[in-house]
Amino acid sequence: MTVWSELTGQDAAIEVFREAARASSGGAAAHPGSGQRMTHSWLVTGPPGSGRSNLAFAFATALISGHPDGDERTRIQVEARSHPDLHVLATEGVIIKRDDVREIVKRSHYAPSVGAHRVIIVEDADRMTEQTSNFLLKELEEPPDRTVWILCAPSEADLIPTIRSRVRSVRLQVPGVADVAALLVRRDGVDEALAEQAARQAQSHIGMAHRLATAPEARERRDETLRLALAVRSASSAVATAARLIEIAGDDAKAIAELRDREEREHALRSLGVAPGQAVPNALRGQLRALEDDQKRRATRTLRDGIDRILVDLSSLFRDVLVVQLGAGVPLVNRELADEIGRAAASASPTTTLATLDAIQTARERIEGNVQPLLALEGMLVSAIRRPDPNRGAA
C-alpha cells in the first residue's frame, strides 16, 4: 500500500506528483515552467469533491518522507496533522486574510526538523484577498531551500495572475461514479450497490459520497429535501419548505461538526501527550480553549456549506426532471425517485424547469453574497411550484 492507494480517478495527476517526489529525493528542483519535474510552488485545482486536499496531503507525505510512495509513519502523522514539518492554512470563514498567513510564512523559513522537506498547504487558496496574495507572492517566488508550498483552489482563474505565473499547476478531473464507488468499497467496506448509489447521488464528490454511504441519517435528510421540493404546490408551501430545508441543513451541519470536533479534540490531546480519559493539565487548557473557539467560529460556514449542498442536490433533481421532459435518454442522478420525477416532468414545461435551475444558481450566489439563506430559499422555491395537470401527458 502506498500513500496514493486511497486516491481515485486521478492517475495522471498522481504520476506528476510521484515523479516530482522522486526528482526531489534525488535533488532535482526547478523554477515553475522550466520543464523539469520538481518545483517548490504548486497549485492543485479541480472542482469540489475531486480530491484536491487529499492529493495535496499525499504529495506532502511523499515529500516529507523522502520517498515517492511515502512511508507509513509519515502518513499517519500527516493524516493527524501532527507532523512537525507540515503546516496547514485553512479557513472556515469567507476569506483568508493577511494576518492568517503571517505566522505560517515565518514557519516556512525554518529548516525541516525531521523530514526531507517542510511543506506548507494552503487549502481554499481562492479565498485569499488580493493583499494576502501579494504578501505570499515573494514566498512563492523564492521559497527557502527544502520548503514546498502547495495551494489548492477550484481553478487557476480564482487566483491573481502573478500567483499563477509562479506555481506549477496540476488540474484534477472529476472522477467517474464507478471510480468513486470502487473507492468506497475498497477503503470503507461499503456494499457495492450502496457505494454506487452514494457515488451517483453525490455526483462523484468523494467526501459527500463517503458521508452518504456511511451515514444513514445523511441519506434520509437528502431524500427528504428532494421530496419536499417536488411537493411544493403554492407560495405558502414554498415558504414552509424553505424553513424546513434550513432545519435539515442545521441538523446535518451539527452532525458533521460534532464528528469533526470530536476527532480534532482527540488529535489535539494525543499531540499534547494527554492519554484518553486523563484530566487535561491546567497548562494545556488554554490550547484546548483556542481549538474550541475556532470550532465555534466555523459553525456559520458549516451551516452555509450544508445549505449549498442542499441546493446542489436540488440542481441534480431538476436536471433529472429536464432530462425526462426532453427525452434525453441519459441516466438519472436520482434514479430512486424516477416515478416522482416523471410526475414532476408532466406537471410543467421544460422552460419552467430551466427557470428553476437558474433560480437555484441565483440562490447559491445570493447566499454566498450574505443574503439571508431563508429569503434566498423562499425565492428559489417559488420557481419550483408544480401544479399537476391531469390532462397533460409526460413530456
Rank of each mutant, 00 (worst) to 15 (best):
G250D: 12
L151E: 01
T132Y: 02
K138E: 10
H31P: 04
V101L: 13
K254S: 15
L284K: 08
L184S: 01
G9A: 12
Q131A: 15
A235I: 14
G189V: 11
R244I: 13
R227N: 11
G327W: 05
A253T: 10
L337M: 12
L137K: 05
E220I: 06
R297N: 06
E103L: 12
P143W: 04
Q131E: 15
Q10H: 14
D191R: 08
A181H: 01
K296S: 09
G342D: 06
N391M: 09
V239P: 00
E19R: 12
T351I: 07
D320G: 05
L172W: 05
D99F: 13
S349V: 07
H210M: 05
R262N: 10
R186S: 15
T91K: 08
L311W: 00
P281A: 13
R37C: 03
Y110G: 00
I310V: 14
A229K: 00
L159W: 04
D252R: 08
L284I: 10
Q287G: 02
A125T: 03
D389E: 13
R171F: 07
E103K: 13
L63T: 01
A12M: 09
H83D: 05
G115Y: 01
A355T: 12
P161D: 14
T362L: 08
G250F: 07
L272I: 11
L184M: 07
V148T: 13
R75P: 00
N54A: 15
A243V: 11
G33V: 09
E196M: 10
R270P: 03
I256Y: 05
L326C: 13
A328I: 07
D71V: 04
E292V: 04
A209M: 06
G9E: 02
S349E: 15
G379N: 09
A279V: 08
I246D: 02
R297A: 10
S82H: 06
S349G: 10
A125D: 01
A283D: 14
G9P: 02
I95G: 09
A338E: 15
V185T: 10
I160F: 10
L159H: 03
R18N: 06
T302K: 05
V44H: 01
V333M: 02
Q287A: 08
S155G: 15
K106R: 14
A231P: 05
A359G: 04
I14C: 08
V371W: 03
Q131I: 12
A181D: 01
V324K: 00
A30R: 08
R81H: 10
R260G: 07
L326T: 13
E247A: 13
L374G: 02
Q201C: 05
R262K: 14
T162N: 14
D313H: 06
D293R: 09
A182D: 09
I385D: 02
R107Y: 12
A181Q: 01
S5T: 14
A125I: 03
R168M: 15
R73I: 10
A249P: 04
T352G: 06
I360E: 00
V330A: 11
L314A: 03
R22Q: 15
R364I: 11
I246C: 12
E292D: 14
T162H: 14
H87T: 08
A345C: 11
G9V: 04
F135V: 03
Q361N: 11
Q36C: 08
V3F: 03
D389C: 09
S25P: 04
A13S: 12
G51A: 07
G51Q: 03
I64H: 01
A215P: 00
E264T: 10
A238G: 07
L140F: 05
P373D: 05
A268D: 02
Q295Y: 01
